[in-house]
Design a protein around this nucleic acid. Structure first.
Lengths: 200, 200
DNA sequence: CGGAATGTGTTGCCTATGCAACATGGGAGA
DNA sequence: TCTCCCATGTTGCATAGGCAACACATTCCG
């Protein structure tokens, strides 16, 4: 429906935002599994039939919400077009500042009381994106035959990043984004990136 | 437009709620005076022209929001039809529980950094309502000629109640609604109500 | 077992809202 | 002073979304 300009209509953006918000809040309250489409639409003050004009079901809503989150990150130059160092230092710092904009979202995705389904989904997506990002950035990279395969390294980095993020979100007195980015860089750089030879 | 059933349309309720919410948040951020209709509608994700389908201007929005808040309180039996003791103990306790549902609202109305205009408006409205309530509840009440006139007493109670509420909202470790209601009862009861002779 | 209750998807019609354009007015700066 | 800019209100037309009703699947309970 209205693929092209429909996205620009204020009503469309508002409806989708309300539904996504209700998805997160609802998951916090009763968990993703127990959440019905009715619950979501009631909370969002959106008619149930309207839900189906945008999404196939609650899984589709989740999926699209994830995608839009990633788009925000990519537009911010955090993943994707950015410079290579970008993802290591300034990029990660930017990421964390972004995260502080959506605290509920990330808490449900990664925090201590994260929803099981959402958390798994998020990590899967993140792994895929990180893999794609590295393959695009270092298209012909190779690693020493003695070391683990590249994909294993990337996957490990992505997973470690998610877990570290979850830990960070739960700290009482969180360290600064800068400090945390530095730690994360140390943790991940040696695992995988140091052995790469960027083709550029 | 659509006075009767229009109120029931989900879109209408949603739009009004979003605008009222944006009013409060916007006031917190930059103050009521500096807030423009554009600011409000942008934040609420509502078209500016739609704003004027519901409200005359930002003052009208504020006025109607106040009225709806009071309606909620009255529906809850806190003011109005309630028993006389209602407003003194159980009623006040209920009121405070209600208040904890709209923390932002009351903080802007009464808290330490309250907006000057909103705060004044709210106190005015509250005084009027309290006056009307007492006159309706004790239609023929009289007071000792040596003591201050009834209206002065009522006004004082209303004002004191607002200030006490503001104080309560700013406490780090807020006392329970029950405890606070008890204090407030002691403060206000002797001022005015103790000398009344309810007609009913 | 059988029925009541509840959730999921879907459809057609009506309406609230978005959008674009306009006139108006006030404030800031050359 | 004369612009330029921005906020306010207002309007006509296009459309997203509300509502009601439906068929169907499911759970639950006597």
């Amino acid at each position: 429906m209205q693929k092209l300009d429909g996205v620009e209509d204020l009503r469309v953006r508002r409806t989708r935002k309300l539904l996504q918000q209700a998805l997160i809040e609802g998951t916090v309250e009763k968990g993703f599994a127990a959440l019905t489409v009715r619950d979501i639409t009631r909370r969002a003050m959106v008619n149930r039939s309207t839900f189906y004009r945008h999404y196939l079901d609650k899984y589709d809503l989740l999926e699209q919400h994830l995608n839009e989150i990633y788009e925000v990150l990519e537009e911010g130059g955090i993943i994707g077009e950015g410079r290579h160092e970008g993802i290591i230092d300034e990029g990660i710092i930017e990421l964390f500042k972004q995260i502080q904009q959506f605290p509920d979202f990330y808490r449900v995705m990664l925090g201590a009381q994260a929803d099981a389904f959402l958390s798994q989904r998020f990590r899967q997506q993140t792994q895929q994106r990180v893999l794609a990002y590295f393959h695009q950035t270092f298209p012909e990279a190779t690693s020493d035959p003695d070391t683990p395969p590249l994909d294993l390294k990337f996957t490990t980095v992505a997973s470690a990043g998610c877990s570290a993020l979850g830990w960070w979100l739960e700290q009482e007195r969180p360290s600064t984004p800068e400090q945390f980015a530095h730690w994360l860089r140390q943790l991940s750089y040696d695992i995988s990136i140091s052995t790469l030879k960027p083709k550029k």
